[in-house]
Nucleic acid binder design. Structure first.
Lengths: 137, 137
DNA sequence: CTAATACCAACCTAAATGGTAGGTATTGGA
DNA sequence: TCCAATACCTACCATTTAGGTTGGTATTAG
């Protein structure tokens, strides 16, 4: 599995915040209830999004979170890369990994490299605005 | 990480067998040495490929493995689906999973579904023959 | 002052990953 | 006829990751 609950939940939260864009700070408690995700677990996922300025948190009563930019300018690739760490399909390509010694004459590496490119391009081609276009029942 | 060592090693073995296509049965010991992978671990990965008729094993002295078809007709998507179980990016899409109750009005599901399609199409568009075209140093 | 909120760190369980160990069955060739 | 080489099989194991829970502290509106 490429995308864990971290990335999936983060995307759902961000989509929820996008639907409530312009309505001020939204308490995560509300989002957690709407999305049926443990609030406590969400609190462990969100910091990376706050620190990288995708969302803004406001402490205290009537506090909450809001998108740091309009939905149309937030790419879901950014959300997933932050929460998952990266979007590499194989260890050989992930940032932590030093270059594999076989890289020079590995027949399979190009397969992963191109898929990596494809993956990032796909998720970077979608913004939160794209996700909230459709009317839901 | 989407693809574990199982899938990566399997692809390397299959590529190795493709390079030796037409030379009869190749002992896995040789392949393991060339690819620098534990023979014992490979022996645990290969059965699923044998059972699904991607390769053929011959026991006994002068035995080994060979591709069950020509390299051009073996899609790497098949290799990866068998060794990894599936190529779904998220649990919601994997075969074992029953349909998620939220599926009907989930704003994020289409993102995964389309990526799933894209992934299978990419890996099914590549055959072993494509991987052994280039001359290596 | 208090209730609601974000923010933070330690802990936990179960499953998956990436193997190893120790065999058995089969077969070609000396 | 026997031996070495091979595929094939099963049980076990250590480490890491996934997916949380628990129990707080800091901040702020009313």
């Amino acid at each position: 599995m490429m995308i864990s609950t971290k990335g999936r939940y983060a995307l759902r939260v961000m989509t929820d915040l996008a639907e409530n864009y312009g309505k001020g700070y939204i308490p995560m408690k509300e989002v957690a209830e709407r999305q049926n995700i443990s609030l406590k677990y969400l609190e462990r996922i969100l910091p990376v999004l706050t620190k990288n300025r995708l969302i803004e948190g406001l402490q205290g009563k009537r506090g909450g979170y809001r998108l740091a930019a309009e939905p149309g300018s937030i790419r879901i690739g950014d959300i997933l890369r932050l929460t998952e760490g990266h979007l590499a399909p194989v260890a050989c390509l992930s940032c932590e990994m030093n270059t594999c010694e076989r890289a020079g004459n590995c027949r399979t590496l190009p397969v992963w490299t191109e898929f990596y490119r494809l993956t990032n391009a796909y998720f970077d081609g979608i913004t939160l605005a794209d996700l909230i276009l459709e009317e839901l029942v």
